[in-house]
Write a protein that binds this DNA or RNA. Structure first.
Length: 607
DNA sequence: GCCGTTTTCGGCCCGACTGTTTTCAGTCG
């Protein structure tokens, strides 16, 4: 039986080779190539194994002919002879120690060489040696380094047990708490989220925050006295302070003067690959970029602007827009900064005009407390509460889509009766709200979220469909079918004329499970041809479709619908996170079906 | 080892912080 490798495992393997080359003082660009390939594979959204099966390894950025041939050997034989050669004369323990924060390749190599670490117990042994003061005896190591290593081991263990990446809304609210505290400091002019949070990535590791100030010392002092700070990790004089909060989350604060605040926002928003590409682009025009500004590298360069700081010999930028403008680029929204062609698009002034939360006109995936008698979870808010809330959000329509009544507990007729009853209630509310409001009242649609059974059969008797305005189908069981069977299952379900939406299409649960396997090309083609819509589900653990698949879908012309899947009215506010996913997928208003006004939306529903 | 709307050869992002090494290397983002 051949061993299979996850993307994470392959990335780790490539990083080990990079680490080995670092110890061996190999060409640093070769090392970078391995690290790039590892990062690319780690962030890839298809399984590398699947890409290999389909002979599409060349689609991975950073994977060229050499690494591709090593992966080929890996999938065929379970090992790579060349990699074994590279690692042969290095202590095995060193690769284990790399997982400890603060220990890089050279330190790991030295520790593994100097200390006797038993296989399988490397980290425990290292910890014991450290406690006995043995690490400080190694040349080049001191008391402080020994202490740092011991603390690194503690952090490593915590990471092993519980620390997962935060879900976007969790990180968002945590960042706002910190920003609220910072804004009470008189020395703080303004603060902004940076990094993956500003780019609205679905999961966030550490939170980075930018602070604009003319008195960094005062801000650093203020922040280290934040009541929720457990430990200060790093503390600079001017530009950085890094802490761990009581909840174990890390916050990095970056400080900058008003003159260069725009340059810093750009620099620390990332992504890393966007910044690398941007700096390469700048270098071609003889400019060098940093968080302080832009340096002109040649005499003959022609440039513009009056923000030159002759002491520092750089151009400074208060606003990010002027930083990009200086490079000849349109301002790039943070969500697009993933090195997927946004720089070229910005040069050519053809960046997409991204969808915004205010464009949304309705929410079609909501669970009310109507007694639908489902075997899944019911909603907690009444239809009236939901309607009021949606009116407040400026929506023109709302679709109630509880789970289907359980098919094992009811006879067909009973199910039909329940659906009919819900329709009657909705008709009545629609009627009375027409009388209540002078303006156009919000329109309530009778929807349903229907399970797709493993065979592809829908969990609702045919006789019930005529009482529905539309339905969503989704998968809640049997996640492990093969890609081919799963694809058939979905297509079969989507074929029914009342089915308009494929809900949370990948089935992934962030931090918990990967999605099931589907042939997306086939799904996209089917949706395009039959006017079916793929959902971006705003549930924090889902955010599904993921952004990369949104990008592929809209490139094909497939329409997307953004729904909150709310079970309580206060969850309707999650819409902005789904919109963020769409924006990261380059979606414009026209790509999103629930930006249409009521009349046009109803036309689409009837198609 | 990868990569290409100025290149299939000749390039390849940038700086802060830390510890201990008296001038810098390692790690990180």
């Amino acid at each position: 039986m051949k061993k299979t490798f996850t993307n994470q495992e392959i990335a780790e393997l490539l990083r080990e080779i990079a680490a080995a080359y670092i110890v061996k003082n190999e060409d640093r660009f070769k090392i970078m190539a391995y690290e790039n390939a590892a990062a690319s594979i780690e962030h890839a959204t298809s399984d590398v194994k699947d890409l290999w099966d389909d002979r599409k390894l060349d689609q991975l950025a950073g994977v060229g002919p050499n690494i591709a041939s090593y992966l080929d050997e890996l999938f065929k034989t379970g090992k790579v002879t060349h990699f074994d050669e590279v690692k042969k004369d290095l202590p095995k323990a060193m690769f284990v120690l790399l997982a400890i924060p603060g220990i890089g390749p050279k330190t790991a190599y030295q520790l593994a060489g100097e200390l006797k670490l038993r296989q399988g117990k490397e980290i425990v042994d290292l910890e014991n040696m450290g406690k006995k003061g043995k690490i400080r005896e190694i040349e080049g190591f001191g008391e402080k380094t020994e202490k740092d290593i011991l603390e690194g081991i503690v952090r490593f263990r915590k990471g092993q047990t519980k620390e997962k990446r935060m879900l976007l809304p969790v990180a968002d609210s945590l960042a706002h708490e910190v920003l609220d505290y910072l804004e009470q400091c008189p020395a703080v002019i303004r603060g902004d989220a940076l990094g993956s949070l500003r780019r609205m990535v679905s999961t966030i590791g550490d939170i980075d925050i930018a602070v604009e100030t003319t008195d960094p010392k005062k801000v650093i002092d203020w922040f280290t006295r934040y009541p929720k700070v457990r430990k200060v990790l790093d503390q600079g004089q001017q530009s950085l302070v890094r802490v761990i909060l009581d909840n174990g989350k890390q916050i990095d604060l970056r400080l900058q003067t008003p003159e260069s605040y725009g340059a810093m926002l750009q620099y620390f928003t990332g992504s890393k690959s966007h910044n690398i590409s941007l700096r390469e682009f700048a270098l071609k025009n003889e400019m060098s970029l940093s968080e302080h500004g832009i340096k002109i590298l040649s005499q003959k360069s022609k440039f513009k602007g009056q923000n030159y700081n002759s002491k520092l010999k750089i151009y400074q930028f208060e606003k990010e827009e002027s930083f990009y403008d200086f490079l000849g680029l349109d301002w790039i929204p943070p969500e697009l900064r993933e090195d997927q062609g946004e720089i070229t698009a910005a040069v050519q002034h053809r960046l997409p005009k991204l969808i915004e939360p205010k464009d949304i006109k309705g929410d079609l995936h909501l669970h009310s407390d109507f007694p639908i008698e489902t075997s899944h979870d019911e909603g907690g808010s009444s239809i009236e509460e939901i309607v009021r809330k949606c009116e407040g959000l400026g929506y023109e329509y709302v679709g109630l889509s509880e789970h289907n009544p359980s098919i094992s507990q009811h006879r067909e007729n009973e199910i039909i009766t329940i659906i009919k009853k819900k329709k009657a209630l909705i008709d009545q509310i629609n009627y009375s709200s027409e009388k209540r409001t002078n303006n156009l009242p919000i329109k309530i649609l009778n929807g349903l979220e229907i399970d797709i059974q493993p065979s592809g059969k829908l969990a609702l008797p045919e006789g019930a469909f005529k009482y529905l305005d539309y339905a969503i189908v989704s998968i809640h069981s049997s996640f492990n079918l093969s890609r081919a069977r799963m694809t058939d299952r979905v297509l079969k379900a989507l074929s029914h004329s009342k089915i308009k939406i494929f809900g949370h299409p990948t089935g992934r649960m962030l931090n918990r499970r990967e999605g099931y396997e589907l042939d997306w090309e086939v799904i996209f083609d089917f949706c395009l041809k039959n006017n079916k819509w793929l959902e971006i589900n705003c549930w924090p653990e889902r955010l599904d479709l993921p952004d990369n698949l949104v990008l592929q879908a809209i490139k094909k012309g497939v329409k997307i619908i953004i729904n909150t899947d709310s079970h309580q009215v206060d969850q309707l506010k999650m819409m902005k996170y789904g919109v963020a996913v769409a924006r990261r997928g380059w979606a414009e208003k026209n790509d999103i079906i629930n930006t249409l006004n009521l009349n046009r939306f109803m036309d689409e529903l009837d198609k």
